[in-house]
Design a protein around this nucleic acid. Structure first.
Lengths: 338, 338
DNA sequence: TTATACTTTTGTAGCGCTACAATTTTGTAT
DNA sequence: ATACAAAATTGTAGCGCTACAAAAGTATAA
């Protein structure tokens, strides 16, 4: 069974409900948006009529008048990175509590970023959250010119366009590396990701090197794997590292997915972790908790980032100009077996 | 409440651009939407002025007149299930190619489903895709009454409200189970998920039982784990199964995540897979490929489901009433080591 | 009764844009 | 130069709703 094509049906309008309920359009409008201005009996009748007639107010028309959409958008390059999913979930929850709706825009190709922003701004979203940072200069220009409230997320080190929520990716990575050093390991390698346009990914590798330098060490090996950050790349990365330094004692992976790939490869090689090789992840993905003997990693609070972004945005929309434009949600090391 | 800054800053309107470029508003409109109606020189000038003034057309106003939003929404309960992420990615790609934009609505609580739909319909999206099926009767009512084109996804067995794209979850699960039976195993168990309102999850367990019945067997053990479908639940599930049937030879897990949890637990127990225990997953998540010796599973084509949903929806929006209301994208067994 | 203060309901005037039709400006053929 | 089609530009009307203000109804006090 299927419904009639959209062009044959004409939608129910507010005036239709008004007529059917025997009131003026304004009373219908108020029944939905300002219940206190309408008597309870009238309101019940209006809502009843609206329900049976399948009326849903056209919010585009309403927004056009009121000038506000009550919609916040998040722009993300992927839904597969569980950290981003956490952030989006945190955002959604915090926004819903304040009566805002979240619109997710998936921008898989970097070159379509400005285009996606233009669409969102065209829809007059009240604010935009970016998973990561804005990459195209055209995007930044658009935000500046239109004055759309914007929150960039994760790394706090860059110079922010508007607001930022996150933590220092550099310091978090350095903290993870220090743990490896504290175990007495000196021959350490890092597996990064070959997406140099992403500051947060660069900062993680930089943090690794800082921690080593602090301890008077240098990296035994370093490799950047291709952008996918899949499990397979972790295995590939480990083998590339071992070619550079066969006596490698520990590896820092800039995502838990890569670290998990390394653990799988160790399993295949029959190596014991952490005795033959210590492994440190980053991001505290749930798989790390389960992989025996438990992946050591850095917890990066995605949910809190989302909630924080919602808070900054709503404050800005409400006109609070004095709010801090930056929010540090911290991170913490999780020591597990590897 | 005082006026927010976004209201103090008056946005650039089409008429502002018209004035600045020395043309009528209609020429500005046409420069953006019907380039062929405007001379190239005029158009360049208009776009130039628009760019420097940071003008972005208010699509809400435009949609109000044209009656079409060129937006399709997808409603999903989670972004963490990688299958859904694949579907959304497939949807996005197919829609973008036709000039549509995708809006993702995250409905984590089932009771907010109808509410989310109302918001989307209120924004006059041209169509809605549901990851899975609609769960609230109120939701179905809303779709019927407003006539919003709808695509439900994954399982093809139910009675569809409007359009459906997917495959038979029952048959896919049965196929997976038959592979276990074909190996000569007779003491088989299943780990399902305790979300009985989801038909597609019920169908997977039902398919397992059908395949057994076909072969004259009955289930050695069955357990439904809590809704999260995390790795930990897989381990829990396996142990619950073993209490029911200590001599269990194989287990069918209705998601690869659960199967991976089972594999981790086998690792902890020091059991060899598949000799001590055969493991069959479902969904072909990328982790299954990596886990030595490779998780046997069923490939469920998420990307194709998304692309198919886009196709059905666009055809419907374009007014093609004769299109098939159901699309079977199939599935296939992937035999790997477990 | 009349004045006073609500509470409830109703017009009016657009929000910013586009469909459509009308008009003006070009280009081309005679 | 004139006729006429084609290209380019412009005006008009109104999409469906809400801010705002005005009006009508109701309750209470003087």
């Amino acid at each position: 069974m299927s419904l009639p094509p959209s062009n044959e049906r004409k939608t129910v309008r507010m005036s239709d409900i008004a007529k059917a309920a025997g009131v003026s359009p304004m009373t219908v409008s108020n029944s939905f948006r300002n219940p206190k201005l309408v008597s309870e009996t009238t309101r019940q009748r209006v809502l009843e009529v609206a329900k049976t007639m399948g009326y849903v107010p056209n919010s585009m028309a309403g927004n056009l008048v009121s000038g506000r959409s009550n919609v916040v958008a998040v722009v993300t390059s992927t839904l597969r990175r569980s950290n981003f999913a956490d952030m989006i979930s945190g955002l959604e929850t915090a926004l819903a509590a304040e009566g805002y709706h979240l619109l997710i825009s998936l921008v898989e190709e970097e070159t379509r970023e400005a285009d996606a922003l233009r669409t969102l701004i065209g829809r007059r979203v009240d604010g935009i959250v970016v998973a990561g940072e804005l990459l195209q200069e055209e995007s930044r220009d658009l935000i500046r010119k239109t004055g759309t409230p914007l929150v960039e997320t994760w790394d706090l080190n860059g110079d922010a366009l508007d607001m930022t929520v996150g933590f220092s990716e550099h310091d978090a990575a350095a903290t993870a590396t220090r743990e490896l050093i504290a175990r007495g390991l000196t021959r350490l390698g890092v597996i990064g990701i070959d997406m140099l346009e992403h500051r947060r990914l660069r900062q993680r590798v930089a943090g690794f090197h800082s921690a080593l330098a602090e301890a008077g060490l240098t990296a035994a090996a370093e490799v950047l794997v291709n952008e996918e950050s899949g499990y397979a790349e972790g295995a590939l990365g480990l083998n590339a590292l071992l070619e550079q330094a066969p006596d490698l004692q520990g590896v820092f992976c800039i995502t838990d997915i890569l670290a998990t790939g390394v653990l799988f490869e160790c399993l295949r090689k029959g190596w014991t972790v952490p005795d033959r090789l210590a492994v440190m992840g980053y991001g505290d993905y749930d798989i790390g908790r389960e992989f025996p003997p438990g992946l050591s990693t850095v917890h990066t609070p995605g949910t809190e980032i989302g909630a924080g972004a919602a808070r900054l945005l709503i404050a800005r929309i409400m006109g609070d100009a004095d709010q801090p434009a930056q929010l540090d949600v911290g991170y913490h090391l999780i020591k597990r077996g590897t």
